[in-house]
Computed example of a mutant assay.
Amino acid sequence: MLMTFGLIPIALAAQSYQISKGEGEVMVTGTSTLHDWEEVAEQKSGSISVDKTGELPTISTLKFTVEAESLKSGKGAMDKNTYKALDTKNHKQIVFNMKSVKSISPVSSNKYKVVANGDLTIAGSTKTIDLPFDLTLDEGKVLLEGKKGLKMTDFNIEPPKALLGTITTGNEIEVHYNTVWK
C-alpha cells in the first residue's frame, strides 16, 4: 500500500493545459510569383501536459489541431485554392501529435528552448518532424512560440496555381505559432 501512495505526488505533478481559443495566433506565410501571402488559423485546439517539479520541466503530451478550412487570407479566391490544395473535403484537420522531446534547455527562470519530435498530418499525409519552440511557464498558463519551415510537396500537396498557371505559389511555407494554453 505504501508503494501506491508514493506514486500519487508524481501523477499529480503534471498539469494539463488547453489552448486558449481567443488568445495567440497560428499563421502560415509563403510566396507566389505575384506577392507574398499569409493565412491565419481561426479555429485551433489542443492540449499539453507539463510537469514543472524538476530542475527542467517535462512535457508528456502535446497535441495541436487546426481546422483546415479555418485558414483565412482575407481573399476568398485564395482561400478556395488553399482548401482545394489541402483537399479539405476529405481532410478536415491539420494535426501535430508529439512523440518525444528531443531537447529542452533553459533561457531564463521560466522560459525554455524546446525541440519536440512528432507526427504532422496535412492533407492526409503524415511526416515525422522536429518542432522547435520557446516554452514559457507563467502563472497558470503556458506560452508556446516559434516557427517551422515546411515544403508543401513533402505532404503530397501541389502548390496552388491561379489564372491558368500564370501565378504559382512557392513550395516553401513557414508556420508561425504564438499560442496561449490555460
Score class of each variant (00 low, 15 high):
residue 49 S to V: 02
residue 54 G to W: 06
residue 32 S to A: 05
residue 167 I to C: 07
residue 18 Q to E: 15
residue 175 V to T: 12
residue 125 S to I: 05
residue 96 F to D: 10
residue 34 L to G: 09
residue 29 T to Y: 01
residue 36 D to L: 00
residue 117 N to W: 01
residue 155 F to P: 09
residue 132 P to C: 08
residue 35 H to F: 02
residue 64 F to V: 00
residue 30 G to W: 05
residue 42 E to Q: 11
residue 142 V to M: 06
residue 95 V to F: 00
residue 4 T to A: 07
residue 1 M to P: 13
residue 174 E to G: 05
residue 97 N to H: 04
residue 116 A to R: 05
residue 29 T to M: 00
residue 49 S to C: 01
residue 53 T to R: 01
residue 98 M to H: 04
residue 107 V to L: 00
residue 164 L to R: 08
residue 44 K to N: 14
residue 51 D to M: 00
residue 158 E to A: 12
residue 53 T to H: 03
residue 120 L to G: 09
residue 81 N to Y: 04
residue 166 T to D: 14
residue 105 S to R: 08
residue 41 A to P: 07
residue 139 E to G: 14
residue 17 Y to C: 01
residue 157 I to L: 05
residue 56 L to R: 02
residue 130 D to H: 11
residue 26 V to F: 03
residue 101 V to P: 02
residue 95 V to P: 03
residue 119 D to C: 02
residue 35 H to Y: 05
residue 28 V to G: 04
residue 47 S to H: 09
residue 67 E to G: 04
residue 5 F to N: 12
residue 71 L to N: 13
residue 45 S to N: 14
residue 116 A to L: 00
residue 105 S to K: 06
residue 31 T to M: 01
residue 24 G to V: 02
residue 95 V to C: 01
residue 140 G to C: 12
residue 65 T to M: 02
residue 118 G to H: 08
residue 42 E to R: 02
residue 67 E to I: 05
residue 169 T to M: 10
residue 96 F to E: 08
residue 63 K to H: 07
residue 90 N to Q: 13
residue 177 Y to G: 07
residue 106 P to C: 04
residue 41 A to G: 12
residue 136 T to G: 13
residue 176 H to D: 14
residue 27 M to R: 10
residue 18 Q to N: 13
residue 144 L to G: 13
residue 93 Q to Y: 10
residue 23 E to T: 10
residue 49 S to D: 15
residue 12 L to T: 09
residue 5 F to Q: 06
residue 34 L to N: 09
residue 56 L to Q: 11
residue 138 D to L: 09
residue 134 D to F: 06
residue 119 D to Y: 06
residue 138 D to C: 06
residue 21 K to C: 04
residue 93 Q to H: 10
residue 182 K to M: 13
residue 24 G to Q: 09
residue 123 A to V: 08
residue 117 N to T: 15
residue 36 D to T: 12
residue 67 E to W: 05
residue 9 P to F: 04
residue 19 I to D: 06
residue 54 G to Q: 13
residue 86 L to K: 00
